[in-house]
Design a protein around this nucleic acid. Structure first.
Length: 480
DNA sequence: GCATGATCATGC
DNA sequence: GCATGATCATGC
């Protein structure tokens, strides 16, 4: 009975487009809408196409080879963006590793998708929602080379008995996201006795946002780093970037500035130089590939002793909001578990670039010029793609939990000679992360749950931790 | 010499 | 005007 009227792509798409603008309550013939999550997709399957929802390995319309996906988006001040990742089929660790990408369960089920988009509106009943657009989507070649590599990254972890260490941030567009009733949902893996979290293939929300803005609600054209997808055959995006940038390794900021005729000494000098080195007219973070993968570039400066000069900050948190969230729904967890970082590493090799010399120099030079003397002696060492290993994510969780419990119990604030001290997690308490102020100045405050005001704070990754990650990842790269 | 608190500066 | 990335500067 399943999808019998809809055996070709045209008929399926035509039917989808007929749904545009109809309130869901008028589509829903079974009263399913009042049930829980995922219901909207089910309503379309059941009431609009008249087939029984299935979660099997075949696409929803097997004859046509089309998988139906009903997916929410948000309208923000910056335009349309995907509300969430697009979750596909659950990964069967025990079987999938035997395949190639083209014989995989993912490709079999999801190579062609019918995407139906609706706007998620807070405080509006689901019955009032409407489908706003419907398209048939097949992956373009330039995305497929990256997605195929993503699939290989995921499967190689399974083949190495590391399914329990999978992370959504391991990959660029196609990811392995957790899926299950609870975070305790686990399943067996073929090459290790350790139970692994149940995960499903998913397209990252950054990738879905790009699809929305390119194929569904517009024709966004971001500058591409890769001009021809064939460039990536036999290599990866990460290696390609390294190869493009490696000719500049060893050069100081000053040398790079002269080389490209860059006059400015602004704090974003590294961003400007990175664009020059790659021949981009805009910023690297705005390129199509970085946007789709949600890659975040970060500058890391290592001192001669190998330490990172600075810790790495994250967005401020709202004290009250923080106390109402679970770890899994917290911003800190989401950033750490989903983000691929590109560390742009600079190293000082001269002993007189040590902290106190830099400080005294900047005092001597006058407080106005900040960036130039701070970075001049640093040489471009390399780029490192990094995402937080599963083990360290657990440590970040401990820091987060201690932060929440301290705020709930009431932060102890003490006035000191230099500023206001507090008892939130210090850098010395964890090898991974700590909490520190991050506002415009000390008067930039937010309320605590008990009503007192406190300087805006955020989570930081320890400078020492960052430095160690850079070194470890470099060794991995040499081995691999 | 490092940790902690504070602040600057750019982009949106 | 604010969020965010980057960096300064004092005190222990």
């Amino acid at each position: 009975m399943q999808g019998t009227q809809y055996i070709d792509k045209e008929a399926i798409l035509k039917r989808a487009q007929e749904a545009i603008g109809i309130p869901l309550k008028d589509i829903d013939t079974t009263g399913r809408l009042s049930t829980g999550k995922g219901a909207i997709g089910t309503v379309i399957e059941e009431s609009w196409y008249g087939y029984t929802p299935n979660s099997e390995s075949e696409p929803d319309f097997p004859e046509a080879g089309v998988e139906l996906k009903v997916t929410p988006y948000l309208r923000t001040a910056h335009g349309v963006r995907a509300k969430e990742r697009l979750v596909c089929n659950i990964i069967n660790y025990m079987e999938e590793y035997k395949n190639t990408f083209k014989t995989s369960a993912f490709w079999h089920k999801c190579n062609t998708m019918l995407l139906m988009s609706y706007e998620h509106l807070y405080d509006v009943p689901k019955g009032e929602y409407t489908i706003d657009a419907a398209i048939l989507f097949s992956f373009p070649e330039e995305d497929l080379v990256i997605i195929e590599n993503d699939w290989n990254v995921i499967m190689n972890k399974v083949r190495n008995g590391l399914a329990h260490e999978l992370s959504e941030a391991d990959t660029l567009y196609l990811a392995a996201c957790t899926k299950g009733a609870t975070s305790a949902s686990v399943r067996e893996q073929p090459f290790s006795r350790i139970a692994a979290k149940q995960r499903a293939y998913s397209l990252k929300s950054s990738y879905m946002t790009h699809i929305l803005n390119t194929y569904i609600f517009g024709t966004a054209q971001n500058e591409s780093i890769i001009k021809d997808w064939r460039t990536l055959s036999g290599t990866t995006f990460e290696h390609y970037l390294e190869k493009k940038l490696s000719p500049f390794y060893g050069m100081t900021i000053d040398q790079l500035r002269k080389r490209f005729g860059v006059e400015t000494s602004a704090k974003n000098i590294v961003d400007i130089l990175l664009a020059k080195m790659l021949g981009l007219s805009g910023r690297i973070s705005q390129t199509e590939e970085f946007q789709k993968a949600g890659i975040v570039p970060k500058t890391v400066r290592l001192l001669p002793n190998g330490y990172s000069k600075e810790s790495m900050s994250f967005p401020n948190f709202d004290f009250c909001e923080l106390c109402e969230q679970s770890w899994e729904e917290s911003d800190f967890y989401r950033i750490l578990s989903e983000t691929k970082f590109m560390f742009v590493v600079f190293q000082s090799e001269r002993t007189n670039d040590s902290m106190e010399m830099v400080s005294s120099f900047s005092v001597a030079a006058g407080k106005k010029q900040i960036a130039p003397e701070g970075v001049t002696g640093f040489k471009f060492k390399r780029i490192v793609f990094w995402n937080m290993p599963a083990q360290d994510l657990e440590e970040a969780r401990r820091v987060w939990e201690r932060t929440v419990s301290t705020i709930k119990e009431g932060v102890v604030l003490k006035k000191t000679a230099y500023g206001m001290s507090n008892n939130l997690p210090k850098q010395t308490e964890s090898r991974v992360a700590h909490v520190r102020p991050h506002g415009r100045d000390s008067r930039d405050v937010l309320p605590l749950p008990d009503g007192r005001m406190m300087t805006k704070q955020c989570f930081w990754l320890n400078g020492g931790y960052i430095a160690k990650q850079v070194v470890d990842r470099s060794h991995d790269a040499q081995k691999g």
